[in-house]
Simulated scan of single mutants.
Amino acid sequence: MANKSNLSGCFNIFNRNGLAWYVDKYAISASLHPVLPEKDMPIYPFPPGKIGIFTRLFDYCNYRLPLTKFLIDVLLVHKVHLSQVNPFDLAKVCHFDLCCRGLGSDPDLDMFRAFYRLNRSGSWFTFEVRNKNSYCYSWITTNLKDWKDRFFWVDDRYVPAEMTWRLKRSVCDPD
């Protein structure tokens, strides 16, 4: 059995009907050429010209393609790839973005970094709360059963080339 904490051990159980449902429900453009990986292929390494997308990015984190500029900015400043961040933490980015907009301002990267810092959790990365007494939300779910085994690939052209894959030995910069 594959080690589920390691991205190279995340194998897809998603089927064509599931992919068709996501493409339709979340209006994923056919021009992004969404495809299912073979059953024995892990999410990473990606095939040339593709990027892996976990389905929870849509139905839990409320993102769509193309990604928001704020999410891309957060990932670039932290030098972490979209597919390496736990969905809970991508939801934190979305929630912060929505809270800022709800208060009538654009989301601010420096403000986000005042609340959160990048942290490694096994093979995944998280946005950890900097100060346990200061956070942007009062509750967030902590269980996403089987989220690592539902993914597909799309063309990587909507992701900046600077968004590189962090190697396991890389450390998070203290900030």
Results as ranks from 00 to 15, higher is better:
residue 4 K to G: 10
residue 7 L to T: 10
residue 10 C to E: 08
residue 14 F to R: 02
residue 15 N to T: 09
residue 17 N to K: 11
residue 20 A to I: 07
residue 21 W to R: 12
residue 21 W to N: 13
residue 22 Y to V: 11
residue 25 K to W: 00
residue 28 I to K: 09
residue 30 A to T: 10
residue 30 A to K: 07
residue 30 A to R: 04
residue 33 H to N: 12
residue 40 D to C: 08
residue 43 I to Y: 04
residue 43 I to S: 09
residue 43 I to C: 06
residue 45 P to R: 05
residue 46 F to I: 13
residue 51 I to C: 04
residue 52 G to W: 12
residue 55 T to G: 08
residue 55 T to Y: 04
residue 55 T to D: 13
residue 62 N to Y: 10
residue 63 Y to E: 15
residue 67 L to G: 03
residue 68 T to N: 11
residue 69 K to Q: 10
residue 78 H to S: 12
residue 83 S to M: 08
residue 83 S to R: 05
residue 87 P to A: 02
residue 87 P to H: 02
residue 93 V to W: 02
residue 94 C to Q: 15
residue 97 D to V: 02
residue 103 L to E: 14
residue 108 D to L: 05
residue 113 R to C: 15
residue 115 F to W: 04
residue 116 Y to E: 05
residue 117 R to D: 07
residue 119 N to T: 06
residue 126 T to W: 01
residue 127 F to L: 11
residue 127 F to T: 08
residue 129 V to C: 12
residue 132 K to F: 08
residue 132 K to Y: 05
residue 136 C to I: 14
residue 136 C to H: 03
residue 142 T to V: 14
residue 142 T to E: 10
residue 143 N to R: 15
residue 146 D to F: 01
residue 148 K to P: 00
residue 151 F to G: 06
residue 153 W to K: 03
residue 157 R to F: 02
residue 158 Y to P: 02
residue 159 V to N: 02
residue 162 E to S: 14
residue 162 E to I: 03
residue 165 W to M: 06
residue 165 W to G: 00
residue 166 R to E: 02
residue 167 L to H: 14
residue 170 S to R: 04
residue 171 V to Q: 13
residue 172 C to N: 03
residue 175 D to R: 12
